[in-house]
């Protein structure tokens, strides 16, 4: 994949936040497995890195296999290891689930008591639908749920839920 294709994709997202950069550049050679990486404008988690050389005496290049952290789609990228990649700032925060609205929007509260009501149930993929169903059924059973909200490049989504330690006992 050419380098040009790799850059210049995040223009669309830049406007979403108040001026703060959504990504920062890092040398491809230092990106590790399980690290984050932007491929084709999507924030991804690297599931496999392999290095090789172009011909025996060429320079090293990295082959990434990565998974979109929101959609679960798989992406691949090949880039010289000395080139810079975009690394997304990924933020993970836990909220206690207060309510599941009829419109599918959730009411959440962080650890300092601030509420957040602009986030819906995960949707779009099978896994997301499964997770949404799980949240709904657990909530309906009266379990106290803690959800993890993943935020990167101006998007956010619930990506995991667990039953709060307090409610299990």
């Amino acid at each position: 994949m050419s380098d040009d294709e790799h850059h210049g994709h995040d223009v669309h997202f830049e406007s979403a936040e108040s001026g703060a950069s959504l990504t920062y550049p890092q040398q491809a050679g230092t990106v590790r497995k399980n690290g984050f990486l932007v491929i084709k404008g999507r924030p991804c988690k690297v599931s496999d890195v392999s290095t090789s050389k172009t011909g025996k005496h060429g320079h090293a290049k990295c082959h990434f296999v990565a998974i979109d952290i929101f959609s679960g789609k798989k992406y691949e990228d090949l880039t010289p290891s000395s080139h810079n990649c975009d690394i997304p700032h990924v933020n993970r925060q836990e909220y206690t689930l207060l309510d599941v609205g009829e419109d599918g929007f959730l009411s959440l509260m962080d650890e300092s008591g601030n509420t957040k009501d602009d986030l819906g149930l995960p949707k779009g993929t099978d896994d997301a639908d499964k997770l949404a169903a799980q949240i709904q059924s657990d909530f309906a059973e009266g379990k106290e749920l803690v959800v993890t909200v993943l935020k990167a490049m101006g998007e956010e989504m619930i990506n995991a839920c667990k039953i709060s330690a307090g409610s299990e006992k």
Binding site: N34, K45, S47, I67, I69, G72, P122, T125, D127, A128, K130, L131, Q134, I135, M157, I158, N159, A160, C161, K162, I163, A165, E168
Partner: peptide
């Protein structure tokens, strides 16, 4: 609470869960 109740976590993606 690192990893607490790791077994009860429902994650978005099976592959990510494996990792």
């Amino acid at each position: 609470g690192r990893r607490a109740h790791a077994g009860t976590v429902h994650s978005l993606n099976a592959r990510l869960q494996e990792e």
